[in-house]
Structures are given as structure tokens and as C-alpha cells.
């Protein structure tokens, strides 16, 4: 049924934003420079706002209310890609994850802004404008640091090689793939992945970083079907803890 297929797609998007939003917020007060501290905190706020927009849409489609859905599920009920749940690590990793993720996200929103589902199209049109700033930020910093010192280049290269198989997991096909494409909801994961590779290659070409041969990589799948690393549940517990203390707290 198309409705279930759409819900599955919206959960993927909302859960990615929620989890990455919480991860980004862990940089608050710890950024390597004040500017980056502010950038990651701002992006965290944006992403939490984006997840709320999609949970609200899901609620209108008959799913639970956004607070319950965001804070009361267990890891195996989450549809986020494993990339976003990984700990923030060093700044290099967080920057590379942000670069890989947001370049994918903007393409997803661009595709959804053309969706035959009007509600989704409206939200995607609005949010892609906000994500454009995230992409601008990521691309600018990757270009700078990816051509700066030998150390910054090699650290970013290492993070890139580590993160890439997880990033391919963003595009894990769903069992509803063809139904969504046929109904004109969006262009599908395979098409998004191809466009994404072009976009990130174009940025990396302007740096000293090398994009590993994609065909040789084993994508990390499972996240979209509720299989997660050991890092997700502790994060969810922490989020639920804050929510239980003050259910009225702002997102």
C-alpha cells in the first residue's frame, strides 16, 4: 500500500535528522573553534526542526504524536542510517559525516520537492533552502581543510575512508522502492546515490582528498530496517531521560 511506503520513507528521513541533530548538538561547547561550535549547534537546531516537521506529517497520517515517536521508541524501531548514530569522534569525522550526509540530504529534498504528494513537496521545498546552508558550510570546510596541511589532509582522508561505507548505507533500498518511484513520490535511492557521487566527487576534486573506489566498498546496510550499532540505544536512552524529566521541554 502506498501509504505504508510513504510512511516508511518519512520515518527514514525524520529519524536521520533527529539522530544527527542530537549528535551535532554534542559539539555545543566543544567545537575546535567558536565558529564551528556555533555552526554545529545551529545545524543541530535545524535538524531537530526538520525531524519535527516530518514527525508532524506522520502524525497527520495516523502515527503517534511527535514526542512519543521521537523519544519513546527503541533502537530496533528506528529507521535511520547507521552513519548518523556513530559517536561524534574527532572533529574530522564529524565534518566528513556532515559533508557526506548533507550532500545526500539536499538531493533527497530536491527530489521530494517535485513529489506528487503535495504535503511532502511543500515541506521539502521549504527545508531544502535551510539544508543548502549546511551543504555550503560542509563543502567550504572540506575544501579548506582538504587542501591545508599534510596533517589535516591525512586525518580527513582517514575519516572519509572510515565513513564512506556507512554513508552508502543512507541509500539502502527499501522494499517499497519501486512503488514510491512509480507513484512519483521521489526518484528512489539508486538515482539519489548516483547524483550524490557526482556532487561529492566535484568537491573532493578541488582538494587533496581521494574518493575511494566505490565499487570496492561494502555498504553498511541494515539501519533502514532497524539494525543498528551499539551506539544508538545509549543515545536514545539519554534523549528519553531528558524527555522524561521535562516532557514540555523544547526540542
Amino acid at each position: 500500500m502506498l501509504e505504508n511506503a510513504i510512511k516508511d520513507l518519512l520515518y527514514k528521513i525524520a529519524d536521520d535528522q533527529l539522530i544527527l541533530g542530537h549528535r551535532n548538538s554534542e559539539w555545543t561547547g566543544f567545537g575546535p573553534m567558536l565558529e564551528e561550535d556555533i555552526a554545529f549547534s545551529s545545524m543541530a537546531q535545524d535538524k531537530l526542526g526538520h525531524s519535527l516537521a516530518f514527525y508532524t506529517l506522520l502524525h497527520q497520517m495516523g502515527e503517534g504524536d511527535p514526542d512519543t515517536v521521537a523519544f519513546m521508541r527503541n533502537a530496533d524501531q528506528f529507521h535511520n542510517s547507521q552513519l548518523v548514530e556513530l559517536p561524534i569522534g574527532e572533529y574530522d569525522f564529524s565534518l566528513i559525516r556532515h559533508f557526506l550526509y548533507d550532500n545526500a540530504e539536499i538531493l533527497r529534498f530536491e527530489s521530494l520537492s517535485q513529489s506528487t504528494n503535495e504535503e511532502i513537496a511543500k515541506i521539502a521545498t521549504k527545508l531544502k533552502g535551510e539544508v543548502r546552508y549546511h551543504v555550503l558550510h560542509a563543502n567550504t570546510l572540506v575544501k579548506q581543510l582538504g587542501s591545508a596541511t599534510q596533517e589535516s589532509i591525512s586525518r580527513l582522508q582517514q575519516s572519509l575512508e572510515y565513513a564512506l561505507p556507512f554513508a552508502l548505507g543512507i541509500f539502502e533500498p527499501s522494499k517499497h522502492e519501486q512503488e514510491l518511484i512509480d507513484a512519483g513520490i521521489y526518484s528512489g535511492e539508486a538515482a539519489l546515490q548516483n547524483q550524490w557521487l557526482e556532487r561529492i566527487s566535484a568537491v573532493l576534486e578541488k582538494t587533496h582528498l581521494k574518493l575511494p573506489e566505490i565499487a570496492n566498498l561494502q555498504p553498511v546496510y541494515g539501519g533502514r530496517y532497524g539494525q543498528h550499532t551499539e551506539h544508538l540505544q545509549p543515545l536514545l536512552d539519554e534523549m528519553a531521560e531528558v524527555f522524561k524529566i521535562d516532557p514540555t521541554a523544547e526540542w
Binding site: E35, S42, D46, Y133, H137
Partner: peptide, 13 residues
């Protein structure tokens, strides 16, 4: 532009 993120979400530096 110095950074797309300022003191509030709607401001850039």
C-alpha cells in the same frame, strides 16, 4: 561571507 551560521538560525556572518 565568513560563516553561514550566526548567533541565531536566521543570521549569517
Amino acid at each position: 561571507m565568513r560563516t553561514p551560521f550566526g548567533p541565531t538560525l536566521c543570521r549569517s556572518m
